[in-house]
Design a protein around this nucleic acid. Structure first.
Lengths: 222, 222
DNA sequence: CCTGTTAGTGTCATTGGCACACTAACCAGG
DNA sequence: CCTGGTTAGTGTGCCAATGACACTAACAGG
């Protein structure tokens, strides 16, 4: 079969669901649309893939533009391409999701007014296109991967306490976990180790600090 | 950002990794390429997505054309789109995988000479493009899903014995399983039930036949 | 009726997951 | 310096799930 004439070809884009943890909430990065359609709506960052650009490289580039952070965990999520998802013309979007440690982001208070901002997952505005579905799918994937991979460590700063880590799990899974069982599980994975340091943090016992053995790789465990 | 001129747009295609079980082997459907590039190579079935055609609908259509079977399990696998994967021009391929019960296929002995055929997964010829990678990814996904979904039943005919089912697992996972533990597990899932029939199959004790409760849905379990 | 072949069944030991409550260390304030 | 408040840190016991393991049942053919 011959390739279609150029008129029959779709536009190829990426969208990235960028997660971070901030204010004890799971948040994701949104940008406000300046143009029609969905003008003024919030949407997932992303953009058109260049003619000779790798799809994942495009997603990574858009992610770095949006967050100012490089080298973050990025994984392909799903490809959305129903014919009417963009009212203008046929647009295929390869959705990715990414995890950024909050500490790596520069905080800006005027973000929302600039048309870019972090929104708690359970307080999202109405999103453009099918982006709400993308966000939902990404959250499901993230929650599932907590169980059988080391993905959670992507949210952690270089040194952290076990209580910090437990909070991360609790926020993502939206449930309470038992402290002793949680610590047992984490230590049994053999993916983090104690440092000699502690963190003093108020008028109570200081907490031991830990670090991830291989901060840059996400392993499948079990 | 404006959409690219039509010259910058990619071709959108699907490819489907169609699995079936035949001759006690996990096999997949290949078609021989008639044109350059990779002329004469075997490749995964697929094709160009129509201008107003849903991507999954396209995959389903190509699957039905290749197998003559409709209503089979089909799931999006991954999207492949590195710039050089097709030497002619930019081609994005959304890969799917599908599972077909062998009993539903019409067998044809002259398949290979017709340029279409079933090949055992561990005896694949060299494949065109990045199709070997697609096949490998699909097999991994399939094996993983055996554990936490009811996907295996998609391979089963309407009535089957527990020994049949065990063979399916053993072939896909490429390992031996304990008969008693396997039967316990299957029955505990509460997804299949006994029929009143048995199958006589040689000079030995006949085997009880079972059927799937909800043959058309694949559930996530555990 | 004897043999060969596949179908079908139960127990025990080990493991992993989960519930559960107290002591330790620090700081602040009286 | 003593007390109270707050978070960090630790171990046991129970129950359910998993995995190893061997014999009897039913049939056909000779």
């Amino acid at each position: 079969m011959p390739f279609p004439t150029e008129a029959g070809r779709p536009v190829l884009t990426t969208n990235i669901v960028v997660f971070t943890l901030r204010d004890e909430q799971l948040k994701l990065l949104l940008v406000r649309r300046r143009n029609a359609p969905y003008q003024g709506y919030w949407s997932l960052p992303g953009g058109v893939v260049g003619e000779d650009e790798d799809i994942e490289a495009n997603a990574m580039r858009k992610l770095e533009e949006g967050t100012g952070v490089s080298g973050v965990y990025l994984e392909q999520l799903y490809t959305f391409g129903t014919p009417e998802r963009d009212p203008r013309e046929r647009v295929i979007s390869v959705a990715y999701y990414a995890l950024v440690a909050s500490k790596r982001l520069r905080l800006r208070t005027d973000e929302h007014s600039e048309g870019v901002g972090w929104f708690a997952l359970d307080e999202l505005p109405e999103l453009a296109f099918d982006h709400a579905q993308m966000a939902d799918t990404a959250h499901q994937r993230l929650a599932a991967k907590l169980d059988y991979s080391t993905i959670a460590f992507q949210f952690m700063p270089e040194r952290f306490t076990l209580s910090d880590l437990q909070k991360v799990f609790q926020i993502i899974l939206n449930c309470e976990l038992d402290k002793r069982n949680f610590r047992k599980r984490m230590l049994a994975m053999d993916q983090i180790r104690q440092t000699s340091e502690v963190r003093r943090n108020g008028s109570h016992r200081p907490a031991r600090l830990y670090r991830v053995n291989n901060p840059h790789e996400v392993q499948i465990i079990k």
